[in-house]
Design a protein around this nucleic acid. Structure first.
Lengths: 159, 159
DNA sequence: GCTAAACCTTACTTTAAAGTCAACTTTCAA
DNA sequence: TTGAAAGTTGACTTTAAAGTAAGGTTTAGC
């Protein structure tokens, strides 16, 4: 139940594009990769996934680049996470061979519905947050980091 | 943002123990492994992690086995997931080299606080569910699976 | 105290995800 | 129309997680 590196970098890239799109600009792969500190190849892979999912659009050729497919206020995090996670149903539970109806533990298994419910809870929480809200959050990063620092100190005191 | 195989099997094993503990019994590794369809070695590894975290206790020697360290009603899922996830802070965000204060994007990064917040949301949702509630859920598995089936159909209609 | 059952621990193997590389195709502008 | 910029795609390499195996240690019962 952790966020993966791919999910994080995907979010970062989208945030880059949200900033650029707000200024009416697009970003090249090289620009995205350089700002996030990842390779151009990796950025290309992420952009390909996001493009295929309809979250971003690209313009080929010279003067080309990537831009958001729709306003940042209309892109919700659950859509982003779902895309970057890959096929959720197939992967989160290997013991069911990827098919909900093929649960080998049927009748003696209270876990399955709970796992589905957990993913639902996460999805709902994420659907409340849009990319534009993330942009707003940036203005308060210092305060937020300070808060995290406090939380960290508390957990250290507990340990 | 998916549940891992280790998390799922860990939950399953705990549920087994919760059932046995309710009857005043303990379970051997062989019993746990056989019922969950995993190897004894793998079950041993999971139990070792849960034991180290204080969620289960073990009795060595002949007539030994595993049992819950405290009542199922006092074991919350967030504790379980946290343990099975490993060190959360160190792993969920590779670009920070494992240290919160060492964020290389400080000042231009609105993602970090959000990631921390997401994990907080998940943690809160999980803290509302106890093992004993899971046991109760088992009685309604069929109804729950039916509900999932409906949800699945809906998502297929959307697609 | 001896033996067998059962847990404990470390190291190894396997496997899937993440990341990289390189060749290809498309597009724009001079 | 031609060359360079930029995106697209599939194959390859790396790396971390998951799973396995084997020997060690503890305990109950005789």
């Amino acid at each position: 139940m952790k966020i993966s590196a791919q999910e994080e970098f995907g979010l970062r890239c989208l945030l880059q594009l949200a900033r650029a799109s707000a200024a009416g600009e697009s970003l090249t792969l090289a620009q995205i990769a350089e700002r996030e500190g990842i390779s151009v190849a990796n950025a290309g892979k992420l952009m390909w996934i996001l493009n295929k999912a309809g979250l971003v659009r690209s313009q080929r050729g010279i003067k080309g680049g990537y831009y958001l497919a729709r306003p940042a206020s209309e892109i919700h995090l659950n859509q982003v996470i779902r895309v970057l996670d890959g096929e959720r149903v197939d992967s989160h539970c290997k013991s069911y061979a990827g098919v909900l109806d093929a649960c080998v533990h049927t009748g003696d298994c209270g876990i399955r519905p709970v796992i589905v419910e957990l993913h639902q809870i996460v999805d709902n929480a994420l659907s409340d947050i849009t990319l534009s809200q993330l942009l707003d959050t940036e203005a308060n990063v210092d305060a937020a980091l300070h808060q995290i620092h406090i939380t960290k100190q508390r957990s250290e005191q507990r340990a």
